[in-house]
Simulated scan of single mutants.
Amino acid sequence: MLELNVKNETSRLKAVVLGIANSNGPTPKLEEAYDPKSKEHILAGTYPVESDMVKEMKALNGVFEKYGVDVYRPHLIKDYNQIFARDIAFVIDDLFIKANILPDREQEVEAIQYIIDQIDTSKVITPPEKVHIEGGDVMLWDDHIFVGTYKGSDYKNYITARTNMYGVDFIKELFPNKTVKEFDLVKSKLEPRDNALHLDCCFQPIGSNKGIIFKNGFREEQDYMYLVELFGKENLFHIDREEMYHMYSNVFSIAPDVVITERNFTRLNNWLREHGMTVEEIPYAEISKQEGLLRCSTMPLIRE
């Protein structure tokens, strides 16, 4: 049996689900793309090719091997995008919570069923149908759970609005002893620089008391101020609109002092090193063209 344990974003990683890029399928048609960044690259003819993405995921897997992490991969579905493991489920404490994913992505959950079968069935949670919640919007910080959402009355018009207020309330009910705080995120169907697809596109804790943040990813300034007051402004690395577009906040921690980042994130990588962290730089710029990066393609199962 898998004894799940994830209480924050940075404790020493022991086991993780890592997506796969093999048999990723042809470049989607414009109307098939979910997010504005993918659309931008489809139109520009720069949409990532499978061989490059396989290489990038291999580099990420190599870092996990270096640190002795147990890595689980989904079963292959032919011609199907299975890179973003974070979207389909997530672990809080010892509970495995399935995301109510976009209907045409349900096969992705079936591809990790062999992992779910190793978890105590009482610990596998399927939310009711009206609850929309995805792993990229759920951020753990010990006694706090941060949840990205979209409160606009036009929620249903945005395929980029992934977690609804039913999702927030569901997490509150599931974890009555934690502080669950929701954040109203900026969404755009057209401009990737103004679209926080998930909370991890504009914020993520790193180390024991630090974080990466994009102020304009939040629709309400008070949501941004909440994090500034909680972490302290000097502990937050502020990214700009272009850095948010390149997904600077979507790094992934193996331990409080070890962070995997994209090799082109020079300003961030220097800051992390200045703050005593080991930075494992890998190429991941092709995958980022689908509006997802390192945190999006991983689903931690066990942290120390």
Rank of each mutant, 00 (worst) to 15 (best):
C296F: 02
A196E: 07
S11M: 08
K37G: 05
N8Q: 07
R267N: 13
I116Y: 04
I213F: 05
L227M: 03
T121I: 08
D52S: 14
N8I: 06
T278N: 11
D137S: 05
K78I: 03
L301I: 03
V259K: 10
R273C: 07
Y150N: 11
I260S: 11
M139F: 02
D240R: 02
F218D: 03
I42W: 13
F214G: 05
Y248H: 08
Y72L: 11
V147S: 09
H238N: 15
R219M: 12
H132R: 13
F170Y: 15
N8K: 04
E56H: 13
E65T: 03
I171C: 05
K172M: 14
T149V: 02
Q113L: 06
L60Y: 15
A255W: 10
Y67G: 11
E229L: 07
N22L: 10
T27K: 04
K151C: 12
R303C: 05
N61C: 13
A255Q: 06
A255T: 12
Y72C: 15
T121C: 05
L2V: 09
M139D: 13
Q113E: 15
H238A: 12
D143I: 03
P128S: 11
Y245G: 15
I159G: 10
W271H: 09
E234A: 10
K289G: 03
Q107E: 10
G148Y: 05
K189P: 04
D142G: 00
S122R: 12
L190K: 15
W271K: 06
K98G: 10
I115H: 01
I77F: 12
I212Y: 06
S153E: 07
T160Q: 06
L197P: 10
R241D: 12
E173N: 11
V49T: 09
P205F: 05
S208R: 13
I125C: 04
T179C: 08
T160S: 05
F90E: 02
R295E: 15
T261R: 07
M277K: 14
L43P: 00
E221W: 00
S11E: 09
F146T: 04
N157T: 11
F96P: 02
S122T: 02
L268W: 01
M1T: 14
E286F: 10
E234N: 05
Y67V: 14
K123R: 07
E32I: 00
G211D: 09
T121E: 14
R105N: 05
I239W: 03
L268H: 02
E243C: 04
Y47N: 00
Y114Q: 07
L174N: 00
E281V: 14
R193W: 00
G152L: 07
H75K: 11
N209H: 08
D184C: 07
A196R: 14
C202L: 08
K151W: 04
E286T: 11
K189C: 01
Y284G: 02
